[in-house]
Amino acid sequence: MIWWHAVLIALAGVWAGMINTVVGSGTLVTFPVLVAFGYPPVTATTSNAIGLAPGTISGAIGYRHELRGQLRRLLTLGPASLVGAVGGTVLLLSLPHDAFETVVPVLVGLAVVLVIIQPRVSSWVLARRESRERRTGTEAGNGKGTAVLLVTAVFLVGIYGGYFTAAQGVMLMAFMGMLLDEPIQRLNGIKNVLAAVVNVVAGTVYAFVAPISWPVVGLLAGGSIVGGALGAVIGRRLPPTALRMVIVVIGLAAIVQLVLRQL
């Protein structure tokens, strides 16, 4: 590995760890970097899953104060993420690599769209919740049907995250924002824990049965731990707009690069 490749991969790991903690979609930073340096898309994805897992853990720890009183909810949603992640890894490992290389530009595009529309989704959810509360005169509750819907959504996002991790955090925030009556920072804490579950499960499976670049894993792991800790500290202060713009630009560049690889 060329030394400046190693430096850029480590820096991408720091940036991705911070973005994953604050917004989500850090894979849209590291994945294009690895592909640009010549790593096959499947290897880039599996190495990402392992390398960014420590960063998601450090980010979740950084949000431990927002997680107080959420143990029962995490014990309900965590297994859904775990089982979904296993299903996603099975899909990645069982489907032909050509199929992954064909679908991954679509997945990156979906991730970019989710990053773009996340603020509008959040605003819509907040307005809808406030309108419901005004009509009923009470705070909106979370019934049994809502709980089942949320567990199902978390399970499906887990499958997606086990197959391709980009924007799973954005998906989780969107679903939880629509279905849970919690402040955004508490939702972010829950999101970090669930994303950590998916990354750890997927990374553990990939470590034994998938093509991995261990030097890349080491660089991403070190960088993402630092980034995750930084993201937890400054996440409440940074406007997400700047981070979102960077993600969108890098994601679009990744789509172009992946499409050109197939021509």
Rank of each mutant, 00 (worst) to 15 (best):
A12W: 01
R261F: 13
V104F: 13
Q118F: 08
A44N: 05
V233F: 07
E133A: 15
A12T: 06
A140Q: 14
V104Y: 05
M245Q: 04
A99V: 15
A140F: 14
S123C: 13
L252F: 12
A6N: 13
A49H: 10
V33C: 08
M173C: 02
V197I: 06
L34G: 02
G169K: 07
V35W: 00
M178S: 11
R72D: 14
I117S: 09
K144M: 15
W15D: 03
F164E: 02
L263T: 04
A254N: 08
V115H: 01
M171V: 00
L179I: 09
G158W: 00
L74M: 14
V7I: 06
I57A: 10
I190D: 07
A195E: 08
P41I: 00
L77K: 13
A53I: 12
M176Q: 06
S131R: 15
R73F: 10
A174F: 03
Q118K: 01
L243I: 04
E101I: 07
M18I: 03
A85P: 04
I117A: 00
L172M: 13
T21E: 02
A254I: 02
R132L: 14
A232R: 00
R64E: 10
A85I: 10
P96I: 15
V201R: 11
R129N: 04
T136P: 05
F31M: 01
L263A: 03
L8D: 05
L230Y: 09
L252W: 08
V226Q: 01
V193K: 08
A80R: 00
A174G: 09
V170A: 05
Y63F: 07
R64V: 13
V106P: 10
R120N: 09
V205T: 09
A202K: 09
V22I: 05
E66T: 12
G17Y: 04
V108Y: 07
L243F: 03
L93N: 15
L92F: 04
L252K: 03
L126N: 14
W15E: 00
T45P: 07
V201H: 02
A229R: 10
F37D: 00
L258Y: 02
I159L: 06
R72W: 11
L92G: 08
T46M: 04
R237T: 14
A60Q: 08
A242G: 02
G38Q: 00
G17K: 02
N188L: 06
T45F: 03
G203P: 07
E182I: 12
L149P: 05
G143M: 01
T138R: 15
K191D: 08
A10Y: 10
L8F: 11
Y63R: 12
R128M: 11
L93R: 12
S213I: 11
L260I: 11
L238N: 05
S47M: 02
G51R: 09
G145I: 07
S123G: 06
P32I: 08
L67G: 04
V125P: 06
V148S: 15
V216S: 09
V108Q: 09
Y160P: 04
V249N: 07
R132P: 06
P239W: 13
G62W: 04
L150G: 08
T43E: 12
A242H: 01
V86G: 03
P183Y: 14
V201I: 05
R128L: 02
W3T: 15
V113Q: 10
V248S: 06
A202H: 02
T152N: 09
I2G: 15
P32R: 03
A111R: 02
T27E: 06
V115C: 01
G227S: 01
A16I: 03
A166F: 11
A49M: 08
P211G: 14
